[in-house]
Design a protein around this nucleic acid. Structure first.
Lengths: 226, 226
DNA sequence: CCCAAGTTTCGATATAGATCGAAATATGAA
DNA sequence: TTCATATTTCGATCTATATCGAAACTTGGG
């Protein structure tokens, strides 16, 4: 009668698998070895776990040469992990390094394949304030003014609309507890921000950094004060 | 550095605990014995599980006499369970009885302490269409017209606003994949619907039933066609 | 005070499954 | 072909924990 919740939750309920899934929350593909390293386990053990995750609809895998590339199978899984982060207690911070990492995550990070954290939420709010987006149910809708803006910003909406996934979803941010932009448009915006070097990925973390150029650009384009 | 996701997920990852938590998703208090029955385990075993859930922030407990009343500790937990239901695979339906129960759940059910399912979503959309509510970020905002409506509907907003919890939140419906009204207002609306006998709780399930009177009332008040 | 009912504690048991070493398999590179 | 690297398979081990019977504890009612 009910969806088999225990089965899914159990999979995330192992520290190694949980660590791998959190590593995958940046929305990129990762190899089995990378994930083993992220979880602090041997490749054999990682293989054991990954097969379990693959057998449900949690992970998708692509074989390329001798690598297997894993990623979260869809946004529902990413959303669920995000909402889990809201519920899970924060472990006491054990070191200065960890607390600064945590601060960086709350400031700006990737959530699956779009931007989240304080910057992600403020960017989305900026787009709404400037009349680029309107919230509508669980989605955002782009306004005519927004279409024009995206054209000037060199973001081709026709291509984005062709994708099978939903165009512009609301995603609830675990650290900010407000919505930010997700979906194909959210993904495209993140890519544009990376392309233009307004934000940069940091190695081995989901946190991202807003460059000086980015701060200026975001202020001018969306009224953000970072 | 990260919230301790595995610890929380592990707790839900046991079939017995999962069954108890799903039973608790109606937002009401349940005794340990009821929950044991819902999970198909003995009271000893339930006690063992409930203590674990109590030790995290998942469950709240109140002692009254020789009973212990449990409920989900807050809406974040309820939301998380809802999003888990979106991810979890539907187990193959094994009987006619189960499939009709499932249909009833999708039609109308309580989600924590407010109304969800098709009826919950349509009611919320009806309120938006009639200019009673406006969606704003992760919340709904009540309009002046809405205030007037609630006054005529005998729902005292001043009392609701005094509650510490958030006034009118968006909650994402797992079966409809749209928002419905949650928060203190969502709770009050559910209560009003029960009081006026527009909907009725069904025994031992989260599903609720819209009465004939309710169908008429909901059509007239919110334009619903059930 | 005594009984009944709800709940917890204790102890014993049984099972699942996370882990890794060693070895096998697959693939690309030289 | 040969070597190196990524991944999986197999086997063994070890630990965690879900379960329930029996008994204790708690509380309300008579």
């Amino acid at each position: 009668m009910h969806p088999d919740t225990a089965k899914i939750a159990r999979l995330v309920g192992d520290p190694s698998r949980s660590a791998m899934l959190i590593a995958l929350m940046d929305g990129r593909f990762h190899t089995a070895k990378e994930l083993a390293w992220a979880a602090g386990i041997t490749p054999q053990t990682a293989s054991f776990h990954l097969r379990k995750l693959e057998n449900t609809r949690i992970l998708q895998v692509e074989k390329h040469g001798r690598h297997r590339y894993y990623r979260l199978s869809d946004t529902d899984v990413a959303h669920w992990m995000e909402s889990l982060l809201r519920v899970a207690p924060l472990t006491p911070v054990r070191s200065l390094r960890q607390s600064s990492q945590q601060r960086a995550l709350r400031e700006a990070r990737t959530c699956y394949d779009h931007l989240a954290g304080k910057v992600g939420v403020e960017l989305t709010e900026g787009m709404v304030n400037r009349g680029i987006l309107e919230e509508e149910g669980t989605d955002y809708r782009i306004t005519p003014a927004g279409e024009h803006f995206m054209y000037r910003w060199e973001l081709d909406l026709t291509v984005i609309r062709k994708k099978r996934r939903s165009f512009a979803r609301c995603c609830l941010d675990w650290s900010e507890r407000k919505h930010h932009l997700a979906g194909a448009l959210g993904h495209a915006v993140l890519n544009r921000l990376l392309e233009t070097d307004w934000i940069r990925r940091l190695p081995s973390t989901r946190a991202v950094q807003v460059t000086e150029k980015g701060k200026e650009g975001l202020r001018e384009a969306f009224g953000l004060d970072l």
